[in-house]
Amino acid sequence: MANHKSAAKKARHDAEARLRNRANRSAMRSTVKSFLAAIAAGDKAKAVSLLPGTLGVVDKACRKGVMHKNAANRAKSRLTLKVNGLA
């Protein structure tokens, strides 16, 4: 329990931020998972159509502070390589 008014406020704000971050991270993971499912199925047309949206969701997670910039760039690169690797 917080002993000061400012510490209590910080705890409230941290709890709200944790929920926001969890929602953003969950949305990103769900989008990437559906994209990877299309890749696993070998459906290049569907994967190519999902790629821009998936990269946008990863960018949004980076902007919101859920991911580090370099981690987001690495993830986007790997997703793009997977699409390009499909026959």
Rank of each mutant, 00 (worst) to 15 (best):
M1S: 15
M1N: 14
A2V: 13
A2D: 13
A2R: 15
N3K: 15
N3Y: 13
H4W: 13
K5T: 11
S6T: 14
A7M: 06
A8V: 11
A8H: 13
A8G: 11
K9A: 10
K10Y: 09
A11R: 15
A11P: 08
H13N: 09
D14S: 12
E16N: 10
E16Y: 10
R18Y: 06
R18P: 06
R18N: 11
R20W: 06
R20N: 06
R20L: 06
N21Y: 06
N21R: 06
N21V: 02
A23R: 05
R25S: 12
S26N: 08
A27F: 06
A27Q: 10
A27L: 09
M28D: 03
S30T: 15
T31W: 02
V32G: 08
S34G: 12
S34M: 09
S34R: 14
F35W: 01
F35L: 05
F35A: 04
L36W: 12
L36F: 11
L36R: 15
L36T: 15
A38N: 05
A38C: 04
A38G: 05
I39S: 03
I39T: 04
A40L: 08
A40N: 10
A40E: 11
A41L: 05
G42I: 05
K44H: 00
K44S: 03
A47L: 00
A47F: 00
V48A: 14
V48R: 15
L50C: 08
L50P: 05
L51D: 02
L51K: 01
L51P: 00
G53F: 00
G53V: 00
G53R: 01
G53L: 01
T54V: 08
T54L: 05
L55Q: 13
L55P: 09
G56R: 09
K60Y: 09
K60V: 07
A61M: 04
A61W: 05
C62G: 11
C62K: 13
C62T: 13
R63I: 03
R63Y: 03
K64I: 00
V66W: 06
M67T: 02
H68W: 13
K69P: 09
N70D: 15
A71G: 14
A71Q: 14
A71T: 15
A72N: 10
A72E: 08
A72F: 08
N73T: 12
N73R: 12
N73D: 13
N73F: 06
R74V: 10
R74W: 10
R74D: 12
A75C: 07
A75W: 02
A75Q: 07
S77W: 09
R78E: 12
L79R: 00
L81R: 15
L81S: 15
K82M: 12
K82H: 09
V83F: 10
V83C: 10
N84G: 06
N84A: 05
A87F: 08
A87V: 12
